[in-house]
Nucleic acid binder design. Structure first.
Lengths: 247, 247
DNA sequence: AAGTGGTCTAGACCACGTA
DNA sequence: ACGTGGTCTAGACCACTTG
């Protein structure tokens, strides 16, 4: 007999937060905090729905969400278990950026260029505006512990463009949040190429040394383009980590 | 008045395929085939559930799945629309690999090394075996149109290791499929670094030129590690493209 | 046989946006 | 006021695994 994990949570039926969300969030937190061990059996959905006094479909919706995020594994006839730790605790590896952040260093950004330019054909097409129309071109350099980490080049629609001062103080996405703009999805392309002379100077690396590149087009859920990014990273300080799920 | 799109689909209640799946798949196909325009309004869920003779929760489940995949956008009080094309038709850009595939060239692989080795500490830890235990180490070179595209280095558990001949004929994941092994998730790390002498020779690029690297640990849904990959790509021929959704 | 998760139903009420 | 999607319920039946 294995003792199943019972999530301790109080459901507030007067809250505006959906019931399933009131289960998902604490459960995710419990896993993140290590209050449940990876691989541990979880209380079955019938008991849990009775105990928390929600309907089975509602509880199932919560559990399904956690399965989608890779935190739970369910097997018919067997039960529900917390996913093995490796899956939701991505490998620690060599990214100085990550190490420095863990060590408490804070990243800083410097705006090195901020100007409205006529959009070239390619940029205009991706932004969904006419070629030649104005767009804000911003170049920032990101540092961590005073070491240059990346050059961030962005094209932004003028009507949602953050001010210079705003950008200097906060990240781009914080500026968006202040305008109630939520990025819902983004197309990304990751590649590599040699550093140009200017990039080498800005990042303090040899000319021609490898750079990690990321091009991004970000959308709101309505499909509006809000950001076009062309970023280059020093690969000795930065790498991309993520978990993919197959369907 | 805008005419909403009505999905033409026959629901087979005797099929073993779930009803919602019988809606998801054709809908996805209809969007991929361009039978619906991006941004086009979709029939509301009440009408659609009546028309297809399924319950509203069942239809909602299908639509929600399509929303999760970024194919539909729903707004309360407004309706459901096909997502803008940019979101589900990722940018065409400079990847010779992609171009060559489109042009009909077929990729080939050559197994350059196939041997059982004692696992080093790091490899053993990631594979979930004891250090020194045996593991199959495979090195392949992938070509496209006779140009070397990538060096694929893999460590595999011995009990699911494909034979040399098998690997030569098919891809690694095809070999897994033959053993009824389904990869459910993978942790990936993408970075860049200079080519070593050996890599430069294999990929026919200058020593020290930029390479795109991808390290992957692949899991079954039970959390079992089935593959450990250390791949390097010629960045002039290959890049990673994907869409991310924020929650 | 018993217990698990997977699918499906018919209906209710609510929140939001438009008119 | 109306129509849209969002949430929730109580219960049914099925498929799979284990004892």
């Amino acid at each position: 007999m294995e003792k199943p994990f019972q999530l301790e949570v109080h459901i507030d039926r007067d809250s505006t937060i959906p019931l399933y969300q009131q289960i998902v969030d604490p459960f995710e937190e419990a896993i993140a905090q290590g209050h449940v061990s990876p691989g541990q059996l979880v209380e079955d959905e019938i008991s849990m729905s009775k105990r928390l006094d929600v309907s089975r479909p509602t509880l199932r919706r919560a559990l399904q969400e956690l399965v989608n995020r890779g935190l739970l594994v369910r097997r018919r006839g067997i039960g529900t278990r917390v996913a093995p730790s490796q899956i939701h605790r991505p490998v620690e590896l060599s990214s100085l950026n990550h190490d420095l952040l863990e060590a408490g260093y804070t990243p800083t950004s410097r705006v090195v260029s901020y100007q409205v330019v006529q959009s070239e054909a390619k940029v205009a097409e991706q932004l969904g505006i006419k070629p030649g129309e104005g767009t804000l071109h911003v170049v920032r350099i990101r540092y961590i512990d005073d070491r240059p980490l990346a050059i961030l080049r962005n094209y932004l629609p003028l009507d949602i463009a953050p001010s210079w001062g705003e950008l200097h103080e906060k990240g781009l996405y914080d500026c968006f949040a202040n305008r109630d703009i939520k990025v819902a999805s983004a197309n990304q392309i990751i590649g590599a190429r040699p550093a140009t002379e200017e990039e080498a100077r800005d990042l303090m690396v040899p000319v021609g040394s490898p750079l990690l590149t990321m091009n991004r087009v970000a959308f709101t859920k309505d499909g509006r383009v809000v950001e076009l990014g062309e970023h280059v990273y020093n690969p000795e300080l930065y790498s991309f980590r993520f978990t993919v799920f197959t369907n």
